[in-house]
Write a protein that binds this DNA or RNA. Structure first.
Lengths: 235, 235
DNA sequence: AGCGGTCTCGACGTCGAGTCGAGGGTCACT
DNA sequence: AGTGACCCTCGACTCGACGTCGAGACCGCT
């Protein structure tokens, strides 16, 4: 018999999230609903029906609470923005990581070029110019030429940089640097890659995250110093 | 008559911080001291004496509370790290901005090598190795060989990376990348450098900040994509 | 000396974030 | 239709974090 429902009851939800959030309880979920942080459907008899999307949302709420100490009221506002497609700086790392929650915005893996032009104000010609220098990659999707999420972020940043007079061709160095960095990571993580079990995969993802964080901590002061050197005689 | 003291009483402190924090009270300051977030000197008679450094610290605490919603316990830990020279991601923008608070750490522009070893647990030999690959620069200060702020951060990050098996020589690419990036910035900002007035200097600092932010926004997704490419066939 | 500011210490208040239990209904399976 | 496990609401309750308040005493400056 195939299971006849595509939702979870409240108990199943809690059980499913327990591994990640050991102190999660049923009453807490009910509380979160009262506070407007999740709004599950109901059965005819009044039981809550949680979709996997609801589950992801709860998971995000709990992580924002525990990792960022945000009060529920603030989380509520952030979720509202998120539903509108605006990812705030703070929760970017949480929704873009590999195990990312399945929020509406996240479900769209790639966006057609015309749609980018119309909804985000990024000209197609500009995107093509970026693609020419490998800054973004135009992929053929079901809706024709599309850009993936990460590439859309690149395009946004490049667009803003253009206002400083920075042309896409100046930005090639960042592509190269990223490739070099990825190669370094791969070299570092070779030992981890021996076997392909779910646990090693998990470990790998974690390590990549940690390495990214550390290299960013390295990069920032190095840049600061380089800038100080460059501008000292001027400033 | 010159004022005969270089500190503030608790009332003066509160008055001084009122503009930025309207709901600050004397009792709250006392409370913060109880919680170990600020530790003013005392007069012989027991009155609290607040230095401007204490004031900056209180200001930072209040901002971390209001803007980042951090609980005091967490702020306390962050301050401890800060005193040790470790600036966490979250409060970097708060302490490095132009009007930055004058934390003890900030007042010391450079720290002697031995002190780094004893208070931060970074071995001098390791620092020397980093210096060999231009990752840090050992400068001759009044206390002999010293490391500047940015370099201490580099050393911390490099130390943590070493736990992944990454040797300093692997990190040279980050130095190169930073130099290239600084050169790019300089090229972009040449027009701004024409005249050397205080306003243009201010503009320059702002521009550098904005460029750093944008290139970071560029870097992040590029790295993500490169990592995806590198590990896709593996994961 | 005297006045305003400050000291300690314990009791108290408030708010966010849940927990608990009583009384009753629902689901799924037999 | 019955039954056992699960779920419902709703109000009262708890708990910790974050302070406030007041009494009674003391300090510091003129």
């Amino acid at each position: 018999m195939a299971r006849s429902r595509d939702y979870m009851t409240i108990g199943e939800l809690v059980e499913g999230l327990q591994p990640a959030h050991p102190d999660l309880t049923i009453s807490k979920i009910r509380f979160l609903e009262d506070e407007g942080l999740v709004t599950p459907e109901r059965t005819a008899g009044g039981y809550r029906k949680f979709s996997s999307h609801d589950a992801a949302r709860v998971d995000l709420v709990l992580r924002l609470q525990k990792e960022h100490f945000l009060p529920l009221a603030v989380i509520r506002e952030k979720l509202k923005d998120l539903d509108k497609g605006r990812i705030s700086e703070e929760l970017r790392p949480m929704v873009t990581r590999p195990e990312a929650v399945a929020l509406p915005f996240d479900e769209v893996e790639a966006v057609p070029l015309e749609q980018i032009q119309s909804t985000m104000g990024l000209a197609t010609t500009f995107i093509r110019e970026l693609a020419e220098f490998s800054l973004v990659r135009i992929v053929k999707g079901e809706h024709g030429e599309e850009l993936r999420r990460a590439d859309i972020e690149v395009a946004h940043a490049a667009w803003d940089l253009r206002k400083f007079g920075v042309e896409p061709r100046h930005l090639r160095m960042y592509v190269t640097a990223a490739e070099r960095e990825a190669a370094l990571f791969s070299q570092i993580l070779v030992p981890t890659l021996r076997h392909r079990t779910p646990e090693t995969r998990q470990k790998l993802v974690e390590s990549i995250g940690e390495l990214s964080k550390l290299t960013e901590e390295l990069r920032r002061p190095l840049l600061k110093r380089a800038l100080a050197d460059t501008f000292e005689d001027v400033v």
